[in-house]
Amino acid sequence: MLETELPESWRGAFRIELRAEAIGLAWRGWPVLPGTYPAAAASGASWTRPVPVHDDWRERVGAHPQQVAAWWTGRPYSLLVATGTIVDAVEVDDTLGRRAARLLRTSGQPAPIVAMPNGRWLFLTTTSETLPGVLADAEGVDWHTEGSWIPLPPTPFEHGVVHWRVKPEVWGWRLPAAATVHEVLVRALSGESSDDAPAQPVLAARPSAA
Rank of each mutant, 00 (worst) to 15 (best):
I113M: 02
I113R: 01
A115L: 02
M116T: 09
M116Y: 07
P117S: 09
P117C: 07
P117E: 05
N118L: 00
N118A: 00
N118G: 02
G119Q: 04
R120H: 10
W121D: 05
W121E: 11
W121C: 06
L122C: 01
F123D: 05
F123T: 09
F123C: 06
F123H: 01
L124V: 02
L124A: 08
T125A: 10
T126Y: 00
T126E: 13
T127V: 15
T127L: 06
T127E: 07
S128T: 13
T130G: 04
L131E: 13
P132I: 10
P132Q: 12
G133S: 14
V134D: 14
L135K: 12
L135S: 10
A136S: 11
A136C: 02
D137V: 10
D137C: 07
A138L: 09
A138Q: 15
E139K: 11
G140W: 08
V141L: 13
V141N: 08
V141H: 05
V141A: 09
D142I: 09
W143N: 07
W143I: 05
H144P: 04
H144K: 06
T145Q: 04
T145F: 01
S148D: 15
W149G: 08
P151T: 00
P151L: 01
P154N: 01
P154G: 00
T155R: 10
P156K: 00
G160Y: 02
G160P: 07
G160N: 02
G160R: 04
G160D: 06
V161I: 09
V161R: 01
V161A: 02
V162Y: 00
V162H: 01
V166L: 11
V166W: 04
V166P: 09
K167A: 06
K167V: 03
K167P: 00
E169R: 13
W171E: 11
W171T: 11
G172K: 06
W173L: 07
R174P: 09
R174C: 12
R174W: 08
A177Q: 13
A177Y: 14
A178E: 02
A178V: 02
A179P: 05
A179L: 05
A179Q: 13
A179N: 12
T180H: 05
V181I: 14
V181Q: 05
H182I: 04
E183M: 06
V184E: 09
V184K: 12
L185K: 08
R187A: 12
A188D: 02
A188Y: 01
L189T: 03
L189E: 10
L189I: 11
G191A: 03
G191H: 07
G191Y: 06
S193R: 08
S193E: 14
D196K: 07
A197I: 13
P198N: 02
A199G: 07
Q200E: 12
Q200H: 08
Q200L: 04
